Simulated assay, not measured.
Amino acid sequence: MRTDIFARLDREPEPPKIEIPRMSRTRLALFGGTLAFYLAIVVAVLISSWLVIIDWKVMLFRPYQQWPELHAFLDYFVVLGQRGPTAVMVAAWLGWRSWRQHTVRPLLVLGASLLLLNATVGAVKLGLGRLGPHYATRIGSPELFAGGDIFPSGHTANAVVTWGILAYLATTPRARRYLSALSAVVALGVGLTTVYLGTHWLTDVLLGWAAGLLILLALPWCETLIGRTETIILSLRDQLLSRRLPMPSLPVASGGPRPAIYPQRLPSEDGGEPVRHPVGAAGAARLPGGGRSTVSGTGAPAGQGAAGTASAAGTSGSTATARLTQTRPHTVARSQHAPHASHTPAPAGTRRPPRSRPVAGG
Protein backbone atom coordinates (compact mmCIF):
# COMPACT_ATOMS: atom_id res chain seq x y z
CA MET A 1 0.00 0.00 0.00
CA ARG A 2 1.31 3.43 -0.92
CA THR A 3 1.92 5.69 2.06
CA ASP A 4 3.38 8.77 0.39
CA ILE A 5 1.42 12.00 0.23
CA PHE A 6 0.83 11.71 -3.51
CA ALA A 7 -1.25 8.58 -2.99
CA ARG A 8 -4.12 10.82 -1.88
CA LEU A 9 -3.95 12.74 -5.15
CA ASP A 10 -4.72 9.71 -7.30
CA ARG A 11 -7.99 9.86 -9.14
CA GLU A 12 -10.62 7.62 -7.69
CA PRO A 13 -12.22 5.09 -10.05
CA GLU A 14 -15.21 6.29 -11.98
CA PRO A 15 -18.35 5.98 -9.86
CA PRO A 16 -20.60 3.15 -11.02
CA LYS A 17 -23.55 5.50 -11.41
CA ILE A 18 -23.96 9.21 -10.67
CA GLU A 19 -27.56 9.96 -9.78
CA ILE A 20 -28.85 12.83 -11.90
CA PRO A 21 -31.82 14.72 -10.41
CA ARG A 22 -35.03 14.41 -12.38
CA MET A 23 -38.03 16.72 -12.57
CA SER A 24 -40.21 14.74 -10.17
CA ARG A 25 -43.69 15.72 -9.07
CA THR A 26 -42.40 17.08 -5.78
CA ARG A 27 -39.81 19.22 -7.50
CA LEU A 28 -42.38 20.40 -10.03
CA ALA A 29 -44.77 21.37 -7.22
CA LEU A 30 -42.00 23.29 -5.45
CA PHE A 31 -41.13 25.05 -8.68
CA GLY A 32 -44.75 26.12 -9.20
CA GLY A 33 -45.11 27.36 -5.62
CA THR A 34 -41.86 29.32 -5.77
CA LEU A 35 -42.85 30.88 -9.08
CA ALA A 36 -46.17 31.99 -7.62
CA PHE A 37 -44.36 33.54 -4.64
CA TYR A 38 -41.96 35.31 -7.03
CA LEU A 39 -44.82 36.84 -9.03
CA ALA A 40 -46.67 37.83 -5.86
CA ILE A 41 -43.67 39.83 -4.59
CA VAL A 42 -43.31 41.62 -7.91
CA VAL A 43 -47.00 42.53 -7.99
CA ALA A 44 -46.94 43.68 -4.37
CA VAL A 45 -44.09 46.09 -5.11
CA LEU A 46 -45.71 47.33 -8.31
CA ILE A 47 -48.94 48.28 -6.55
CA SER A 48 -47.11 49.78 -3.51
CA SER A 49 -48.71 47.35 -1.06
CA TRP A 50 -47.99 46.95 2.66
CA LEU A 51 -44.67 45.24 1.74
CA VAL A 52 -43.38 48.59 0.46
CA ILE A 53 -44.34 50.19 3.78
CA ILE A 54 -42.32 47.51 5.62
CA ASP A 55 -39.39 48.26 3.32
CA TRP A 56 -39.43 51.90 4.38
CA LYS A 57 -39.79 51.13 8.08
CA VAL A 58 -36.76 48.83 8.00
CA MET A 59 -34.75 51.37 6.05
CA LEU A 60 -35.59 54.22 8.46
CA PHE A 61 -34.74 51.96 11.42
CA ARG A 62 -31.17 51.82 10.05
CA PRO A 63 -29.92 48.50 11.50
CA TYR A 64 -26.28 49.38 10.83
CA GLN A 65 -26.65 52.24 13.35
CA GLN A 66 -28.45 50.10 15.93
CA TRP A 67 -25.73 47.41 16.03
CA PRO A 68 -22.53 49.05 14.80
CA GLU A 69 -20.33 46.36 16.37
CA LEU A 70 -21.49 43.88 13.69
CA HIS A 71 -20.58 46.12 10.78
CA ALA A 72 -16.94 45.05 10.39
CA PHE A 73 -17.74 41.33 10.40
CA LEU A 74 -20.74 41.59 8.08
CA ASP A 75 -18.73 43.61 5.57
CA TYR A 76 -16.61 40.49 5.02
CA PHE A 77 -19.46 37.99 5.37
CA VAL A 78 -21.44 39.56 2.54
CA VAL A 79 -18.60 38.61 0.16
CA LEU A 80 -20.05 35.07 0.23
CA GLY A 81 -22.79 36.45 -2.00
CA GLN A 82 -20.60 38.24 -4.53
CA ARG A 83 -20.56 36.50 -7.87
CA GLY A 84 -16.84 36.67 -8.64
CA PRO A 85 -15.26 35.32 -5.42
CA THR A 86 -17.92 32.67 -4.83
CA ALA A 87 -17.79 31.44 -8.44
CA VAL A 88 -14.00 31.03 -8.21
CA MET A 89 -14.17 29.12 -4.92
CA VAL A 90 -16.96 26.78 -5.98
CA ALA A 91 -15.46 26.26 -9.46
CA ALA A 92 -12.12 25.23 -7.89
CA TRP A 93 -13.84 22.62 -5.74
CA LEU A 94 -16.00 21.31 -8.59
CA GLY A 95 -12.97 21.20 -10.88
CA TRP A 96 -11.21 18.96 -8.37
CA ARG A 97 -14.27 16.71 -8.24
CA SER A 98 -14.47 16.60 -12.04
CA TRP A 99 -10.84 15.47 -12.27
CA ARG A 100 -11.25 12.77 -9.64
CA GLN A 101 -14.52 11.44 -11.07
CA HIS A 102 -13.47 11.57 -14.75
CA THR A 103 -16.33 13.86 -15.75
CA VAL A 104 -16.94 17.52 -16.53
CA ARG A 105 -20.60 17.51 -15.49
CA PRO A 106 -20.09 19.45 -12.20
CA LEU A 107 -18.44 22.35 -14.04
CA LEU A 108 -21.10 22.31 -16.76
CA VAL A 109 -23.89 22.41 -14.17
CA LEU A 110 -22.23 25.38 -12.45
CA GLY A 111 -21.85 27.18 -15.77
CA ALA A 112 -25.47 26.56 -16.75
CA SER A 113 -26.77 27.79 -13.39
CA LEU A 114 -24.70 30.99 -13.50
CA LEU A 115 -25.83 31.63 -17.07
CA LEU A 116 -29.48 31.28 -16.05
CA LEU A 117 -28.85 33.50 -13.02
CA ASN A 118 -27.33 36.32 -15.07
CA ALA A 119 -30.03 36.13 -17.71
CA THR A 120 -33.11 36.02 -15.47
CA VAL A 121 -32.04 38.20 -12.54
CA GLY A 122 -30.28 40.71 -14.78
CA ALA A 123 -33.30 41.10 -17.03
CA VAL A 124 -35.67 41.77 -14.11
CA LYS A 125 -33.19 44.20 -12.52
CA LEU A 126 -32.90 46.30 -15.66
CA GLY A 127 -36.60 46.01 -16.48
CA LEU A 128 -37.93 47.25 -13.15
CA GLY A 129 -35.12 49.73 -12.51
CA ARG A 130 -35.65 50.09 -8.75
CA LEU A 131 -33.43 52.42 -6.69
CA GLY A 132 -31.75 51.28 -3.49
CA PRO A 133 -32.50 52.59 0.02
CA HIS A 134 -29.53 54.99 -0.02
CA TYR A 135 -30.81 56.61 -3.22
CA ALA A 136 -34.55 56.77 -2.39
CA THR A 137 -36.24 60.09 -3.12
CA ARG A 138 -39.86 59.80 -1.84
CA ILE A 139 -40.95 58.14 1.37
CA GLY A 140 -43.48 55.39 0.72
CA SER A 141 -42.62 55.12 -2.97
CA PRO A 142 -41.51 51.74 -4.45
CA GLU A 143 -38.81 53.65 -6.42
CA LEU A 144 -39.45 51.61 -9.57
CA PHE A 145 -38.45 52.52 -13.14
CA ALA A 146 -35.97 55.09 -11.88
CA GLY A 147 -32.79 53.67 -13.44
CA GLY A 148 -31.76 51.41 -10.52
CA ASP A 149 -30.70 47.77 -10.59
CA ILE A 150 -31.25 46.23 -7.16
CA PHE A 151 -34.57 44.37 -7.50
CA PRO A 152 -34.16 41.43 -6.97
CA SER A 153 -31.04 41.23 -4.81
CA GLY A 154 -28.18 39.82 -6.85
CA HIS A 155 -26.10 38.94 -3.76
CA THR A 156 -28.96 36.90 -2.33
CA ALA A 157 -29.81 35.06 -5.54
CA ASN A 158 -26.15 34.34 -6.20
CA ALA A 159 -25.68 32.93 -2.70
CA VAL A 160 -28.66 30.61 -3.17
CA VAL A 161 -27.47 29.32 -6.55
CA THR A 162 -23.71 29.11 -5.98
CA TRP A 163 -23.82 27.32 -2.65
CA GLY A 164 -26.95 25.38 -3.53
CA ILE A 165 -25.09 23.79 -6.46
CA LEU A 166 -23.00 21.85 -3.94
CA ALA A 167 -26.14 20.23 -2.55
CA TYR A 168 -27.55 19.66 -6.03
CA LEU A 169 -24.40 17.77 -7.09
CA ALA A 170 -24.05 15.74 -3.89
CA THR A 171 -23.66 12.01 -4.53
CA THR A 172 -25.07 10.70 -1.22
CA PRO A 173 -28.29 11.59 0.65
CA ARG A 174 -26.34 12.44 3.80
CA ALA A 175 -24.06 14.87 2.01
CA ARG A 176 -27.07 16.40 0.26
CA ARG A 177 -28.80 17.10 3.58
CA TYR A 178 -25.74 18.71 5.15
CA LEU A 179 -24.93 20.81 2.10
CA SER A 180 -28.56 21.91 1.75
CA ALA A 181 -28.57 23.16 5.35
CA LEU A 182 -25.23 24.92 4.87
CA SER A 183 -26.31 26.66 1.66
CA ALA A 184 -29.61 27.73 3.26
CA VAL A 185 -27.80 29.31 6.22
CA VAL A 186 -25.33 31.14 3.97
CA ALA A 187 -28.07 32.41 1.63
CA LEU A 188 -30.24 33.54 4.56
CA GLY A 189 -27.32 35.29 6.22
CA VAL A 190 -26.20 37.08 3.05
CA GLY A 191 -29.71 38.34 2.35
CA LEU A 192 -30.22 39.73 5.86
CA THR A 193 -26.73 41.25 5.79
CA THR A 194 -27.63 43.34 2.74
CA VAL A 195 -30.68 44.63 4.63
CA TYR A 196 -28.49 45.42 7.65
CA LEU A 197 -26.00 47.35 5.51
CA GLY A 198 -28.83 49.28 3.84
CA THR A 199 -27.91 48.24 0.30
CA HIS A 200 -31.22 46.43 -0.40
CA TRP A 201 -34.87 46.63 0.53
CA LEU A 202 -36.40 43.68 2.34
CA THR A 203 -38.51 42.84 -0.72
CA ASP A 204 -35.31 42.75 -2.80
CA VAL A 205 -34.03 39.97 -0.58
CA LEU A 206 -37.31 38.03 -0.70
CA LEU A 207 -37.30 38.15 -4.47
CA GLY A 208 -33.63 37.15 -4.56
CA TRP A 209 -34.29 34.03 -2.51
CA ALA A 210 -37.14 33.07 -4.82
CA ALA A 211 -35.09 33.76 -7.97
CA GLY A 212 -32.19 31.58 -6.84
CA LEU A 213 -34.46 28.74 -5.76
CA LEU A 214 -36.24 28.78 -9.11
CA ILE A 215 -32.93 28.24 -10.91
CA LEU A 216 -31.97 25.30 -8.70
CA LEU A 217 -35.39 23.70 -9.16
CA ALA A 218 -35.26 24.15 -12.95
CA LEU A 219 -31.80 22.61 -13.43
CA PRO A 220 -33.10 19.06 -14.18
CA TRP A 221 -34.61 20.44 -17.38
CA CYS A 222 -31.08 21.35 -18.48
CA GLU A 223 -29.54 17.93 -17.79
CA THR A 224 -30.14 16.63 -21.31
CA LEU A 225 -28.28 19.54 -22.87
CA ILE A 226 -25.54 19.25 -20.24
CA GLY A 227 -25.08 15.55 -21.06
CA ARG A 228 -24.78 16.23 -24.78
CA THR A 229 -22.27 19.02 -24.16
CA GLU A 230 -20.20 16.72 -21.95
CA THR A 231 -20.12 14.06 -24.68
CA ILE A 232 -18.92 16.60 -27.25
CA ILE A 233 -16.21 17.95 -24.93
CA LEU A 234 -14.87 14.49 -24.06
CA SER A 235 -14.80 13.43 -27.72
CA LEU A 236 -12.87 16.57 -28.66
CA ARG A 237 -10.44 15.93 -25.82
CA ASP A 238 -9.83 12.36 -27.02
CA GLN A 239 -9.19 13.59 -30.57
CA LEU A 240 -6.65 16.17 -29.38
CA LEU A 241 -4.87 13.63 -27.20
CA SER A 242 -4.68 11.10 -30.05
CA ARG A 243 -3.05 13.71 -32.27
CA ARG A 244 -0.55 14.94 -29.72
CA LEU A 245 0.59 11.64 -28.21
CA PRO A 246 3.44 9.87 -30.15
CA MET A 247 3.11 6.30 -31.41
CA PRO A 248 4.53 3.83 -28.86
CA SER A 249 7.69 1.96 -29.93
CA LEU A 250 7.45 -1.84 -29.89
CA PRO A 251 10.27 -3.70 -28.07
CA VAL A 252 12.37 -6.20 -30.06
CA ALA A 253 11.91 -9.72 -28.74
CA SER A 254 14.91 -11.89 -27.97
CA GLY A 255 15.98 -13.77 -31.10
CA GLY A 256 13.73 -11.68 -33.31
CA PRO A 257 14.69 -9.42 -36.21
CA ARG A 258 17.25 -6.79 -35.31
CA PRO A 259 17.02 -3.10 -36.23
CA ALA A 260 18.33 -1.97 -39.60
CA ILE A 261 22.12 -1.55 -39.85
CA TYR A 262 23.20 1.65 -41.50
CA PRO A 263 26.54 1.67 -43.38
CA GLN A 264 29.36 3.86 -42.13
CA ARG A 265 31.33 5.82 -44.71
CA LEU A 266 35.11 5.78 -44.21
CA PRO A 267 37.20 7.95 -46.52
CA SER A 268 39.70 6.15 -48.75
CA GLU A 269 43.33 7.12 -48.16
CA ASP A 270 44.28 7.05 -51.86
CA GLY A 271 41.53 9.52 -52.76
CA GLY A 272 39.24 6.88 -54.26
CA GLU A 273 35.60 6.20 -53.56
CA PRO A 274 34.78 5.97 -49.83
CA VAL A 275 34.40 2.46 -48.49
CA ARG A 276 31.13 1.42 -46.83
CA HIS A 277 31.46 -0.66 -43.69
CA PRO A 278 28.18 -1.83 -42.16
CA VAL A 279 28.25 -1.22 -38.41
CA GLY A 280 26.08 -3.31 -36.17
CA ALA A 281 24.60 -2.62 -32.77
CA ALA A 282 27.66 -4.07 -31.02
CA GLY A 283 30.04 -1.76 -32.84
CA ALA A 284 31.59 -4.46 -35.13
CA ALA A 285 32.58 -3.67 -38.76
CA ARG A 286 33.20 -6.25 -41.48
CA LEU A 287 36.44 -5.86 -43.43
CA PRO A 288 36.68 -6.60 -47.15
CA GLY A 289 38.61 -9.85 -46.63
CA GLY A 290 35.92 -11.50 -44.60
CA GLY A 291 37.54 -10.57 -41.29
CA ARG A 292 35.86 -8.65 -38.51
CA SER A 293 37.19 -5.65 -36.61
CA THR A 294 35.84 -3.93 -33.54
CA VAL A 295 35.24 -0.23 -33.00
CA SER A 296 37.13 1.36 -30.16
CA GLY A 297 35.70 3.73 -27.57
CA THR A 298 36.64 6.71 -29.78
CA GLY A 299 34.54 5.39 -32.69
CA ALA A 300 37.46 4.51 -35.10
CA PRO A 301 38.03 0.95 -36.45
CA ALA A 302 40.92 -1.02 -35.07
CA GLY A 303 43.20 -3.24 -37.12
CA GLN A 304 46.82 -2.07 -37.15
CA GLY A 305 49.79 -1.99 -34.78
CA ALA A 306 48.48 -4.60 -32.35
CA ALA A 307 48.90 -8.25 -31.62
CA GLY A 308 45.90 -10.50 -32.33
CA THR A 309 44.60 -13.13 -30.00
CA ALA A 310 42.56 -16.01 -31.40
CA SER A 311 40.52 -18.59 -29.61
CA ALA A 312 38.94 -21.68 -31.19
CA ALA A 313 35.32 -22.36 -30.36
CA GLY A 314 32.87 -25.07 -31.44
CA THR A 315 33.61 -28.18 -33.53
CA SER A 316 35.67 -28.70 -36.71
CA GLY A 317 35.04 -26.10 -39.38
CA SER A 318 34.56 -23.12 -36.98
CA THR A 319 36.64 -20.06 -37.68
CA ALA A 320 38.87 -18.10 -35.29
CA THR A 321 38.01 -14.55 -34.28
CA ALA A 322 40.80 -12.04 -33.92
CA ARG A 323 40.50 -9.14 -31.49
CA LEU A 324 42.66 -6.27 -32.48
CA THR A 325 43.57 -3.26 -30.35
CA GLN A 326 43.95 0.06 -32.17
CA THR A 327 46.98 2.31 -31.67
CA ARG A 328 46.09 5.06 -34.16
CA PRO A 329 43.18 5.59 -36.60
CA HIS A 330 43.47 4.43 -40.22
CA THR A 331 41.32 3.81 -43.27
CA VAL A 332 40.90 0.80 -45.47
CA ALA A 333 40.75 1.11 -49.29
CA ARG A 334 38.33 -0.88 -51.45
CA SER A 335 41.12 -2.55 -53.45
CA GLN A 336 43.00 -3.88 -50.39
CA HIS A 337 42.57 -7.37 -48.97
CA ALA A 338 42.83 -8.56 -45.40
CA PRO A 339 46.42 -9.49 -44.52
CA HIS A 340 47.36 -13.17 -44.41
CA ALA A 341 48.21 -14.67 -41.06
CA SER A 342 51.81 -15.45 -42.24
CA HIS A 343 52.55 -11.92 -43.37
CA THR A 344 54.87 -9.69 -41.42
CA PRO A 345 53.08 -6.72 -39.84
CA ALA A 346 53.97 -3.28 -41.09
CA PRO A 347 56.59 -1.25 -39.24
CA ALA A 348 55.39 0.96 -36.44
CA GLY A 349 54.42 4.45 -37.49
CA THR A 350 53.27 3.69 -41.04
CA ARG A 351 49.71 4.57 -41.98
CA ARG A 352 49.18 1.99 -44.76
CA PRO A 353 48.63 -1.70 -44.04
CA PRO A 354 51.09 -4.24 -45.59
CA ARG A 355 50.27 -5.46 -49.09
CA SER A 356 49.78 -9.14 -49.66
CA ARG A 357 52.71 -11.06 -51.19
CA PRO A 358 52.76 -14.56 -52.77
CA VAL A 359 53.93 -17.25 -50.42
CA ALA A 360 57.28 -18.70 -51.53
CA GLY A 361 57.25 -22.33 -52.49
CA GLY A 362 53.51 -22.31 -52.94
Rank of each mutant, 00 (worst) to 15 (best):
L240V: 13
G299N: 06
A300C: 14
R328P: 01
S235K: 13
G256R: 02
G256L: 00
P347T: 03
A284Y: 09
G308K: 08
S335Y: 13
P220R: 00
S318W: 09
G299V: 04
T319D: 06
R243K: 11
T350I: 07
G317E: 14
A312P: 01
H343I: 12
S318M: 12
L213D: 04
P329C: 05
Q336P: 04
A348F: 11
A306I: 03
A284V: 10
L217C: 06
T224M: 06
A281G: 12
P263E: 04
T327W: 05
H330N: 01
R258Y: 09
L213G: 10
A341G: 09
L324C: 08
A348M: 07
S316F: 14
Y262E: 14
I232R: 14
Q264F: 08
L219N: 08
P257W: 04
E230T: 08
L324S: 09
P248L: 04
L216N: 03
G297I: 06
H343A: 14
G303E: 04
H337N: 08
D270I: 02
P288M: 06
R286I: 05
A346E: 05
P248N: 00
T298R: 13
Q326Y: 10
E269F: 04
S318F: 00
P220D: 03
Q239A: 12
S311F: 09
R286M: 12
R258A: 11
V279H: 08
A310Q: 10
I226K: 02
S342I: 14
A281D: 14
G349D: 00
I215L: 02
E223G: 07
L240W: 11
L213N: 03
A312V: 08
A260K: 15
G255R: 03
T298C: 07
A346D: 07
S235V: 13
V275R: 15
P345M: 11
R292Q: 13
P246C: 05
S296K: 05
T231N: 13
E230L: 01
H330W: 13
A320C: 15
T344R: 12
I232F: 05
A300Q: 09
A312N: 01
A282I: 02
Q336A: 13
A302D: 06
Q336S: 14
G283C: 01
R323S: 11
T309V: 14
G303N: 04
Q264I: 13
R258N: 10
A285V: 15
S268I: 04
G349W: 03
S268P: 00
P263R: 05
Q336W: 13
V332R: 05
G289V: 03
P267H: 11
G297H: 14
S268Y: 01
T309R: 10
L217I: 07
P259N: 13
G290K: 00
L287H: 10
A313D: 06
G227N: 06
S268W: 00
L250Y: 07
L241Q: 15
T327I: 07
G291I: 02
A300M: 08
L213T: 09
P345Y: 03
S235A: 15
V279S: 05
S242P: 04
P301S: 06
G227M: 04
S318P: 00
L234A: 10
S242K: 08
A253G: 12
L214Y: 04
A312K: 06
Q304F: 02
L287K: 08
D238C: 04
H337T: 15
A306H: 10
Q264D: 05
E273I: 13
A260N: 12
T319V: 15
G314K: 05
P246K: 02
D238P: 03
P259T: 06
